[in-house]
């Protein structure tokens, strides 16, 4: 994305740059997930292309009242343009990757999860295990929110952020394990 275009978008999101940077990243993540939920193979590229197009319009002086709504419209058009072609490519690539046995994958994931939980600070670890554990989740989440003096939405957002970080950590660990296995087999 050209610097001038990016500047135009950042300026529209918030007055101070730090807040604008945070809002930009949050919007980008929402777009990435949208394209993933719509089964696109390269959601990150499509999210960046969406933001690129919107930023270019703003930089060109196009009057845009609601940036996020405009982004959603551009994303929808982009989806129509590219989804089918990208999806096909993804399926072709999937066929080339041999699936791992479930139990072996589970055992490795469990070991990685333990390591990643250790890396979380105690408060986050307690929150994530409390939020996703147990058999009466609705009541437990209400209790957890009360204990922490948070609304349910705020608690949910916090849990989602921690879980995303945790899953990313496990995924990286699994990828490292796979590289190590490949190296030892060479």
């Amino acid at each position: 994305m050209e610097k001038a275009h990016l500047e135009a978008l950042i300026r529209r999101l918030a007055d101070d740059r730090e807040t604008a940077g945070g809002l930009y990243e949050e919007l980008r993540q929402r777009l990435i997930r949208y394209f993933r939920w719509e089964r696109c193979a390269e959601p990150e590229d499509l999210a960046d292309e969406t933001l690129n197009r919107v930023a270019r319009k703003l930089s060109d002086g196009e009057p845009i009242d609601h940036v996020e709504r405009y982004c959603a419209g551009v994303a929808r058009l982009l989806l129509r343009e590219t989804a089918t072609r990208l999806r096909r490519r993804e399926l072709a690539m999937k066929k080339m990757i041999p699936p791992e046995t479930e139990a072996a994958e589970d055992a490795r994931a469990m070991a990685c999860l333990e390591r990643c939980l250790e890396k979380l600070d105690a408060d986050h670890r307690q929150l994530i295990l409390g939020y996703y554990g147990g058999t009466r989740q609705i009541e437990q989440r209400k209790e957890l929110a009360e204990e922490r003096g948070l609304g349910l939405n705020a608690l949910r957002n916090r849990a989602l952020r921690i879980r995303e970080r945790l899953e990313e950590c496990v995924r990286q660990g699994l990828n490292r394990d796979e590289s190590a296995i490949r190296d030892t087999e060479k």
Binding site: E105, A109, M110, L113, E114, L129, Y132, G133, L166
Partner: peptide, 9 residues
Amino acid sequence: AVARALMAK
């Protein structure tokens, strides 16, 4: 696999 590990935990 990550969810299975988290649920087991």
